[in-house]
Amino acid sequence: MVPRFERRRMDFLDVDDDAVTWYLPGDVLAILLFVLLGELRHGGLTVERYAGVLLPFLIGWLIVAPVVGAYGERTVDSTRSAILLALVGWLGADFLGQVLRGTDYFPGNADPQFFLVTLLFGGLLLAVARFASLVVVDFAGD
C-alpha cells in the first residue's frame, strides 16, 4: 500500500509514459524552431545567443508542462486536452521564460510585447506539433 503523502505527490505530477513518448520530441522541436525562427528574423544568430534565448523557455517548459498536465493521461485520450494543456503549459513556460530573461543570466529582457508574441507563435507551433504527433501515433497504430 502506498502511503497517503506519496499518492498525493504522484497525483500532483500527472505524467503518462505514452504522453511523454508521443509529445515531448515534437514539443521540444517546436520550441527549438520557435527560437530559431525568432533569431533568424531578428538577425543575431550565434550558438551562444541561440542557447541563451532558448534555455529560459526550455527550462520553463520542462518545469511547467508536467505540473499543468501537458503530459498527463488525459492528453493520451483526448486531442482537445492534448492541445489545450500544451497551450496552458506554454502560457506558464512563457511567463517563467520571461522572468528568467529578466535576470542577468540570459540575453534579452522581460518585455510584455515579446511575451505576447512568444505566447502566440510559440503556442501555435506547439499546437501544430501536438496535432502532428497525434497524426503520427494514429497512423502508426499505437
Rank of each mutant, 00 (worst) to 15 (best):
L32V: 14
V47H: 08
L55M: 13
R80H: 10
G60L: 02
L87D: 07
G26W: 08
Y23D: 10
G60P: 03
L36F: 10
D17K: 14
W90Q: 02
I63C: 10
S81R: 14
W61E: 04
V47K: 06
A70I: 02
A65Q: 03
D14C: 08
P56A: 05
E48R: 13
D77S: 15
Y50N: 03
A82I: 04
R7S: 11
G69N: 01
L91I: 15
A65I: 04
Y23K: 03
A86C: 10
L55F: 13
Y50A: 04
V64P: 00
G38A: 09
R49D: 09
T21G: 08
D27K: 09
P25A: 13
T75H: 00
L36P: 02
D94V: 12
D18T: 12
L37H: 09
I63S: 06
I63A: 14
S81G: 11
Y23A: 12
L13N: 08
T46L: 12
V28S: 07
D18F: 07
R8N: 08
F12R: 11
I59C: 00
T75M: 05
L62A: 03
E39K: 12
E39W: 02
A19L: 05
L84Q: 07
W90S: 00
A19E: 01
D14G: 04
V67E: 00
T21S: 10
T46G: 15
V47G: 10
D18G: 10
V47M: 10
D11C: 13
I31C: 06
P66S: 07
I31F: 07
T75P: 01
G38N: 02
G26Q: 09
G38M: 06
H42R: 06
E6P: 05
R74V: 13
D14M: 06
T79K: 11
L45K: 03
S81N: 14
S78A: 09
G44H: 12
L24K: 03
I59P: 00
R8D: 06
V68Q: 05
R80T: 15
V68I: 12
D18V: 11
D11T: 13
D16C: 11
R74G: 14
A70E: 00
G43P: 04
S78M: 09
D94I: 06
D77V: 11
A30W: 00
D14A: 13
D14F: 09
F57M: 03
M10P: 08
H42A: 05
L29E: 11
L36E: 01
G69L: 02
L84F: 12
L36Y: 07
V20Y: 03
R80A: 15
L87H: 08
L29H: 09
T21P: 00
